[in-house]
């Protein structure tokens, strides 16, 4: 489903976090949301999956304002995979976690029917967690957990996927596998990605957020210009499409001189060379 964000203003504890954000993800598009720490990426996602109420502007999924949909109706359209930190899932198995994705499809009295079970089984298979199905979720590794949470999101049968740093803590192979999985779903996706290389690889389009506003948006190569990379991320870098069709970013040896806060020149970006990658 198409996602349209128009003139979005969000304040948290009276501080404006998002100002006049407008963006669009067309049906089937994978749109990457990039920007330094604190630029408002997660806040934007929270507004999309209805956890935050905007102070102004609208978020439309499939043409309907999400604030006008019931929580359940909204969750039948939009599924989110969030960072794993929260929750207290001790005692739930992987299969039970994935089955939570069926919650928005039922009322208080609804019980899982054969259709629900086959949807859950399908999501488990697609994410390759069949062998983990009876394990306690808390006993899994970070990468396994992310795949389980993605399976839960797919069990929701969403028309829009919202991903927050899905590939954090994953090794390179697991990242590629997960990205391929998301590509294969064909579902419209809005993904916050810290790693620009990964964003360039996965996404059809990128939106760059900086201090709560959109500073660039469009096809990957149009957005990742040396100028944007320098001004927003504080690094000397350039991006180009290689012969294999993959966009790669080459970083300079040093971050650009300037008065940027140390944390915003984030952990893994500055100084990192473009290590030749094996294509998955």
């Amino acid at each position: 489903m198409k996602l349209t964000v128009e003139g979005l203003h969000v304040t948290l504890d009276q501080n404006p976090v998002l100002r006049n954000v407008t963006l669009e993800a067309r049906e089937g598009d994978i749109v990457g949301l990039v920007g330094p720490n604190g630029s408002g990426k997660s806040t934007l996602l929270r507004t999309v999956y209805r956890s935050l109420r905007p102070a102004g502007g609208t978020v439309r999924v499939g043409g309907d304002d999400v604030r006008k949909l019931s929580p359940r109706d909204a969750a039948r359209r939009t599924a989110a995979v969030l960072q794993d930190a929260e929750g207290n899932t001790t005692g739930l198995t992987v299969a039970e976690i994935v089955a939570l994705g069926r919650a928005p499809h039922h009322g208080l009295l609804g019980r899982d029917g054969p259709e629900d079970r086959s949807t859950v089984a399908d999501a488990i298979d697609r994410c390759g967690v069949r062998s983990l199905a009876d394990r306690d979720y808390t006993s899994l590794s970070g990468g396994e957990r992310q795949r389980v949470l993605l399976a839960r999101a797919l069990a929701q049968e969403p028309r829009l996927l919202v991903l927050d740093e899905l590939t954090n803590h994953l090794d390179i192979r697991a990242r590629f596998e997960l990205l391929n999985l998301i590509r294969a779903t064909g579902v419209t996706t809005l993904a916050v990605l810290h790693d620009l290389d990964l964003a360039a690889r996965l996404c059809d389009r990128l939106v760059v957020l900086c201090e709560g506003t959109v500073v660039a948006a469009g096809p990957v190569l149009d957005v990742l210009t040396p100028r944007t990379l320098g001004e927003v991320f504080g690094v000397r870098a350039s991006a180009e499409r290689h012969a294999d069709g993959v966009v790669r970013i080459t970083y300079g040896a040093q971050p650009l001189a300037g008065d940027r806060a140390p944390e915003s020149a984030s952990h893994d970006l500055p100084g990192r060379r473009n290590v030749p990658e094996t294509t998955a």
């Binding site: 939009t78 989110a80 939570l100």
Partner: peptide, 21 residues
């Protein structure tokens, strides 16, 4: 009867919201 919703609550508040609760 609230059993399923209680399960969703275990996933944490943000995830539960995204699951329509």
């Amino acid at each position: 009867l609230f059993g399923r919703r209680l399960n969703v609550l275990l996933a944490g508040d943000e995830s539960a919201t995204a699951l329509g609760i």
